[in-house]
Design a protein around this nucleic acid. Structure first.
Ligand SMILES: [Zn+2]
Ligand SMILES: [Zn+2]
Ligand SMILES: [Zn+2]
Ligand SMILES: [Zn+2]
Lengths: 134, 134
DNA sequence: TTGCGAAACGTTATGCTATAACATACAGAC
DNA sequence: GTCTGTATGTTATAGCATAACGTTTCGCAA
């Protein structure tokens, strides 16, 4: 395992130990134990590699990162982000990909990457709210 | 027209005079003529109101803003962002909204906002590239 | 017309996110 | 052991966004 792979594996395990979103600086703090001198560029470089490899997703609406939950082959996932608890659920949807491909084709757009995020309240928090207000 | 509406109208016209994405600081610079003492909070407050009203869209993958091209009733749009020229095309797609609603329903997620962005090369830039390489 | 109060703007300061540019250290090939 | 490419460390800075509080504006009511 090269140095690069080691750093990426460490970051991935930090992310997997967390249910929700982490910022790059959160990750950096979590790595301060094993890498006392770690600095932002190192984290961003590793995140960039992990993201390109599909093992980590960047949440554009949050400037945050999460471990992929799926080993999915397609690059694209639907990310449902809970505003209350921060949990993220990842869903694959070929239907949406097809629809987007159709939209792109109509105007000659050639997509290289998709961002599909839903922001709202997860099922758990939604039912907790219902219970509280009943 | 109240002060707030004036500021929002000015920001909107700055955005509409631009084909592509602008950062909040770009907008602020463009307003320095009419508002010499303008500062970030003012711009962000107005952008927040405009975004809520659906007249401006925030491009999450770019930390940027654009004027809505559609007067669309639905809150949600598909934004196709060209990496080469910065142009953004806005498309409405009820099909995608339905698909997302289905995804959400399956897990009890209650969405309040959607982010749907395609990053890639627009039709114009794509054909320009083809011409150049032929 | 004057005074009040809400809303919006200005000011100051700061925090978070991300990258540029260059130096150093590491690991594997030879 | 040296060479060499790659990754990390270091320093600095750019870019995005908001907190907290003071000041201005302006409609409205007395
Ligand atoms: Zn995934
Ligand atoms: Zn939740
Ligand atoms: Zn729109
Ligand atoms: Zn283009």
């Amino acid at each position: 395992m090269t140095r690069g792979e080691q750093m990426q594996a460490d970051i991935l395990s930090v992310l997997m130990a967390q249910d929700g979103v982490m910022s790059a600086y959160d990750i950096m703090d979590a790595l301060k134990g094993s890498y006392p001198k770690i600095a932002p560029p190192t984290v961003y470089r590793a995140l960039s590699a992990l993201t390109k490899a599909g093992q980590v997703h960047r949440l554009e609406s949050r400037n945050g990162y999460m471990a992929c939950q799926h080993d999915h082959a397609e690059e694209t996932a639907v990310l449902s982000i809970c505003d209350d608890c921060g949990a993220v659920e990842e869903t694959a949807s070929n239907k949406i990909l097809d629809d987007l491909a159709y939209v792109a084709k109509k105007s000659g757009f050639v997509p290289s990457r998709h961002v599909i995020e839903m922001i709202g309240t997860c099922g758990d928090c939604a039912s907790a709210e219902r219970d509280a207000s009943s």
